[in-house]
Structures are given as structure tokens and as C-alpha cells.
Design a protein around this nucleic acid. Structure first.
Lengths: 109, 109
DNA sequence: ACCTGATATAAGTATATGCTTATATGTTTG
DNA sequence: CAAACATATAAGCATATACTTATATCAGGT
């Protein structure tokens, strides 16, 4: 018999992890996450911070929203995006540390 | 002036993180990582464990190698793949935990 | 050398994704 | 309502990627 507990099947967990990794697999999206780490930001603030076009920012924000990584809140003409979970920052840091090490190791060899 | 230290520019760090996330954005590759968590495995062992075709396994192993996530070692007719860094397991677990929570939260709301 | 098993590559297809330019929607203010 | 600003969507293009089927390479045994 199967005893899955609360966390769902290993299959579902891997699927979810792949989904999250995909959402984090674009540099512009990671830059957005970094900006949002300092609190909610409007689209235009994000555009200014990243130096990308407004439609491109909108596109990535839509993707981040679809992947549940960000929250959306409208206030007047502005739309404020924020991180859905603070652990995103830690997770991003872990990815970054590991990736940097892997690359550095390769450069040396 | 810029004081970057040993870890490279934030830009390079994000690029590296995006690269790693992309490598981890496929469920079959995550399944391979899970299998390799128990030690080196040959291609056919991986094929048997995942129930995927041999060329597909080879394709993903090539991608994992290109992304520096796995080591390759030939022994006779067999090619053994292993994890390049044990932190991959922890990182995958972190991704999985966070992703599962995000999805669960959404399901509830 | 030949055969068998293990792995890699090639070719082809379908789909997805990142980006740009142009346009639409929505909100506030005069 | 019109004008101005903030954001979203549409259309189009180029590239990447996951997968399948078929074939090639490579190593070991007879």
C-alpha cells in the first residue's frame, strides 16, 4: 500500500519542482524577483529597474503570476506586484550559489 | 568603483542561476537526478528506472552534462553518470517544497 | 572478423518561449 | 468627454526544446 502523507506523490512533487524551476529559468524573471525582494513594485518601477520594454515586463509578470510566484494588487492606475513567498529569495540564492560554483569549477578545470 | 569580490557580478550570478533552473525545469531530468542521488548509474539503469526510451534518456543526460550537473565515467561498454554536486539534492528538495506549497495554497483559495 | 549489447547521434516534428512593434484597455484629471 | 498615463494584449518572428524513429558508434565475447 501507498503511504503518501500530506506532501503528495513524489511524481507530483517533481512535477511541481519542474514547474517552479521553469518559472525561474529566465534571467529577466529572476531580476524581477530580485527587485520585488525589496517590497511591492509597480510595473513601471520594474520597467525602469530592469531597462526592458513595458510589454516584455508585462509578459514576464504574467508568467510569474501564472506560476504563482507573485501577487498582484491594483491601486488606482498602478498594478503592484509582490513576491508570493519570501522563500523565493532563499531559493534563488541557493540556485545562484550552486550554479556559480559549478561554473567556476568548470572554468578552473 | 565596483567591488565584486570572488562571486562575480550579480548579473553573472543571475545568469548562472537561470541556467541551472533551466537545466532543472524538466521532470525527466529531475527524475534522473533523483535516481543518481543513490549513486552512479549506467544509462540502461536510468532507462529502466524512468521507463523512458534510451535516446530520450541520452538526450537528457547530454543536457545535464552540458549544464554541468552530472559527471560521466566510462567503464567497459557502460557509461556511468553521477551527480556533480550533492547540493543538487537539497536544492531540488527546496524547489519541490516551495512549489508544492505554492500549488497547495492556490488549490485552497 | 562477427555478433551482441550499450550508448550516442541524426532527422524530423510539434510545441513553447522570448522578444519586438503596434494596439487596446483601464484609470485619473482637466 | 478628452487627453494623458499605466498596463495589458495581439500579432509576428526566431529560436529552442522535448520527443519519436531510425541509424550510427563503440566495446566485449566467441
Amino acid at each position: 500500500m501507498k503511504a503518501e502523507g500530506v506532501q503528495g506523490s513524489g511524481d507530483a512533487r517533481l512535477k511541481a519542482a519542474a514547474f517552479l524551476a521553469k518559472a525561474m529559468s529566465d534571467e529577466n524573471r529572476l531580476r524581477i524577483i530580485c527587485v520585488l525582494a525589496n517590497g511591492q513594485k509597480s510595473v513601471s518601477e520594474i520597467v525602469d529597474a530592469l531597462h526592458i520594454s513595458q510589454p516584455l515586463a508585462s509578459h514576464h509578470l504574467k508568467e510569474l503570476k501564472r506560476s504563482l510566484l507573485v501577487t498582484v494588487e491594483r491601486s488606482g492606475p498602478f498594478v503592484y506586484y509582490g513576491l508570493a513567498d519570501k522563500r523565493l529569495i532563499k531559493t534563488l540564492a541557493a540556485l545562484s550559489d550552486l550554479a556559480t560554483d559549478l561554473l567556476a569549477r568548470r572554468t578552473v578545470l
